[in-house]
Write a protein that binds this DNA or RNA. Structure first.
Lengths: 160, 160
DNA sequence: CCAATTTAGATGCATTTGCATCTACCGCAA
DNA sequence: TTGCGGTAGATGCAAATGCATCTAAATTGG
C-alpha cells in the first residue's frame, strides 16, 4: 500500500485532467511542428476539417465555434482569412438573418484532403507505437464519454 | 458486426486523437471561462503551477517550455510579464551562463494556491459526473502512457 | 403589435503570439 | 588555445487573439 492509497476523488479528477492535458500538449506540439501544417495553421485546418465532415456541407459559424478553442471574434476573423484565401465560402443563413453559413470551396476541400492525409499519417505514427488498438479504443471511449457529459450542447452527431 | 469492423489502424489512431483533442477543448473551454482565471490566463497559471511542483523550487526556462504549448519566444515574454507582476523571480543558471532559473515568489505561490484550489474544484465538478473513479484512473493511465511514448524527453518525474 | 431582451456576428483596439534573427555562452575538435 | 557548430534566451516586427462594444435580427412579454 503506497502513498497514493488515500487519494481523494477531487485529487484523482485533477490528476486525470492534468494527464489528459499534458498528453494533448505533447501530441499537439509534435503534430503542429510537422511539415503538414506549412500552408495552414492547425486552427485553420481544423475549421476546414470540421466543414468537410458536415453532412449538409453548410455549417453555422456559431456551431463551428463549439469545436474550436477560440473566442467568437477570433473565429470570425479566422474565417474571414480563409474566405480571402478562397478556401471557404459564406452565405447568409436563409432562416436567420443574423446567421452566416459556411462551406468549403473546391480548393478548400482539396487542401483539406491534402493536409488531412499527411496529418492522419503523423497521428498514427505517434499513437500507433504508444497504445495498442484496444487501448486506443478505450481512450476514445473515455474521452467521448467525457465530452458527452459536458453538454448542454451535445457533440453534434454527424452521420457520415 | 456493425460498419466499423473494417477499421484500419491508421483510422483508429486518427479518431482516437480527435476524440482526445475535442474532449480537451471542451473541458478547457469550460475551465478557462470560469471565475478561477480572472486574475491570470490559463497559460500563466500553468507556469506557476509547474513551478510549484518543482522539488528544488528552481526550474529552467527550457524545461518549462516542454510542458506548455507555447513557442520559446512567447514563453520568454510570458515569464517576463510574470516577473514584472512579482509572481516569479529569475536567476542566471549557476552552471550554464546561457540559462535562466525561475522560481515562485511568495506572492506567486500564494496566488497559485488560491487559483489552484478553485481550479481543482472546477475540474472535479466536470470530471466527477462524467467518469467513474475507475474510468478516471484508466484515462490517466492511458494518457500517461501516451505521453511517455512520445519522448525523447521523458515526462520529467517529479517526486513530490 | 410594440418595447425590451437576447443572440449572431463584425469591428476597434490593446495584448499576446510566433517567426526570424540576434547575442551570449557552451562543448567539441584540431 | 582557437575556431565552429549547437543551444538558451531575448527581441523586432508582423500576425493572431481576446475583450469590449456595436449593429442587426430574432425572441419574449406585455
Amino acid at each position: 500500500m503506497a502513498g497514493k492509497s488515500t487519494e481523494s476523488p477531487v485529487r484523482l479528477a485533477a490528476e486525470t485532467w492534468e494527464s489528459l492535458f499534458r498528453a494533448q500538449v505533447a501530441v499537439m506540439r509534435k503534430l503542429q511542428s510537422g511539415p503538414a501544417f506549412r500552408k495552414l495553421a492547425v486552427n485553420e485546418y481544423d475549421v476546414l476539417f470540421t466543414l468537410s465532415r458536415c453532412p449538409s456541407g453548410w455549417l453555422r459559424l456559431n456551431e463551428l465555434n463549439d469545436n474550436v478553442l477560440l473566442s467568437q471574434s477570433s473565429l470570425s476573423r479566422l474565417v474571414e482569412r480563409l474566405e480571402k484565401r478562397g478556401l471557404i465560402a459564406r452565405m447568409p443563413a436563409p432562416e436567420d438573418g443574423r446567421g452566416v453559413l459556411l462551406k468549403l470551396t473546391d480548393e478548400g476541400r482539396e487542401l483539406q484532403k491534402e493536409i488531412g492525409r499527411e496529418h492522419v499519417r503523423d497521428i498514427s505514427e505517434l499513437m500507433g507505437p504508444a497504445l495498442t488498438p484496444a487501448e486506443q479504443k478505450e481512450l476514445m471511449r473515455l474521452t467521448t464519454k467525457l465530452r458527452s457529459s459536458l453538454g448542454p450542447r451535445p457533440p453534434r452527431q454527424d452521420p457520415r
